[in-house]
Structure formats: structure tokens, C-alpha cells
Simulated scan of single mutants.
Amino acid sequence: MFKKLVFTSAFAISSLAAQAAELTVDIAGITQLEGDIYVVLYDSVSAMESNKATLAYKGAVTKLQTTVTFSDLSAGDYAILAYQDLDNNQKLNRNMIGIPNEPYGFSNNPRLMGPPSFDKLRFAVGDVDHTIQISID
């Protein structure tokens, strides 16, 4: 009987570790009800550097705060870029020196001089659901 109990407990623990989490991203700071909101999720330095999103969301801006949910994420480190595409050209517009001129924000809400790095935007998702807040300006 003891062997069966140990096996059952070990199975329960291993199935908990294999569960995927849900990530909720609350976006605040929207000031204009126009265009689309993009939320781009990266799972590694190389994915971010090559602009290969792990998952992405696009939706019309209909209110000044929005929530996006990514389901079935494996435990690990992630980084997020969120931006409001005011002119619906499907990209984050930049001025002549490369500074974005549409509202944008990142996971961890860092104030950056220059392009973001995965390390500055990194946050961990474990085996339980997780929520982060991003403010776009």
C-alpha cells in the first residue's frame, strides 16, 4: 500500500510541474480611443533581438485601459513590448532619430535611453497564473 501511495504522490507532483500558466497583461495610460493595441511577447534574448514574437495580440482600442491574456505559457522568462498603432500601419512609428512617436511601454515599465534589452524587460512566469501591469505613454 505504501508503494502505491508514493507513486500517486509523485504523479501528482509531476503533473503540477507540467501545468501551463495564464499571463494577464493590464495596459494603462491609453489617452486616445483610436488605432490598435499590440502586445508582443518574447521568450528569449534571441527572439527579441530577431523580432520573432513568441505570441502576439492585436485589438482595436475601445477603452482607455485594456487587458490581454496569454494562455498555456510554459514556466520561464518573458519580455513584453506593448504599443498603440494610432495610424493602423501595423508598426511602431519612429521619428528621424529612431525614438518612437506612438504610445508604447514595456514589461517592468523601465525608463530607457536607447533600445530595450530582454534583461531589463524580463519577468518570470511560473506554474501559477501571473498578472503584470504596463503603462504606455
Rank of each mutant, 00 (worst) to 15 (best):
V39Q: 08
L33Q: 10
H130Y: 13
S15W: 00
V68P: 07
N89C: 01
K52E: 15
R111L: 09
V68C: 06
I97R: 03
K4L: 11
G76V: 00
I99G: 06
K120T: 08
P116Q: 08
N51M: 14
A17R: 05
S74G: 11
T54Q: 08
S135C: 01
N51D: 14
D127V: 13
Q65P: 05
D43C: 09
L92T: 10
G126Q: 12
F123R: 12
I37H: 02
D85A: 09
M113P: 00
N89Y: 01
F106D: 02
A20Y: 09
Q32D: 13
P115R: 02
R94G: 03
S50T: 15
F70E: 04
S44V: 14
D77W: 10
Q84F: 04
N93P: 01
I97F: 14
R122N: 11
A17W: 06
K58L: 02
P116T: 08
Q19V: 08
Y57M: 07
D129V: 02
F123S: 11
A53F: 07
A21W: 00
V125R: 04
M113Q: 10
G114Q: 08
A56K: 14
S107E: 06
P116E: 04
A75T: 03
K52L: 07
D85M: 13
Y78L: 05
P110C: 01
L41G: 13
N95G: 04
A20F: 05
D129G: 05
L92G: 06
N108Q: 14
T67W: 00
D127M: 07
L16V: 04
Y104W: 10
F2M: 05
G98H: 14
A79M: 11
G76Y: 00
I80M: 09
G76H: 01
D127R: 06
V61L: 07
T69P: 05
Y57D: 09
V45T: 15
M48E: 13
F2Y: 11
P110N: 02
G59P: 10
L112R: 05
E102A: 10
I136W: 05
V128K: 10
A28L: 14
K52Q: 15
G105R: 11
I99T: 07
I37W: 03
F106R: 02
K91L: 12
L86G: 01
A12Q: 04
I134H: 04
V45G: 07
S14L: 13
I134Q: 03
E22L: 00
N108V: 04
D119S: 15
Q90F: 01
L86R: 02
Q19E: 07
V25G: 02
V125P: 06
K58C: 04
V40A: 14
Q84R: 08
P116Y: 12
A124T: 15
L81M: 12
S71Y: 13
D87W: 06
Q32M: 03
G126I: 11
Y57S: 14
Q65M: 13
Q65A: 14
Q32V: 01
S46K: 15
F118G: 09
T69D: 10
A12F: 09
D129E: 10
H130W: 02
D43R: 15
A20Q: 15
P110G: 02
L81I: 10
I97H: 03
T8Q: 05
I80S: 09
S135D: 08
I27S: 01
A47C: 06
D127S: 13
P115G: 09
L112W: 09
N89V: 01
G98P: 11
Q133I: 03
Q84C: 04
A60D: 12
V61D: 05
I37E: 08
S107W: 01
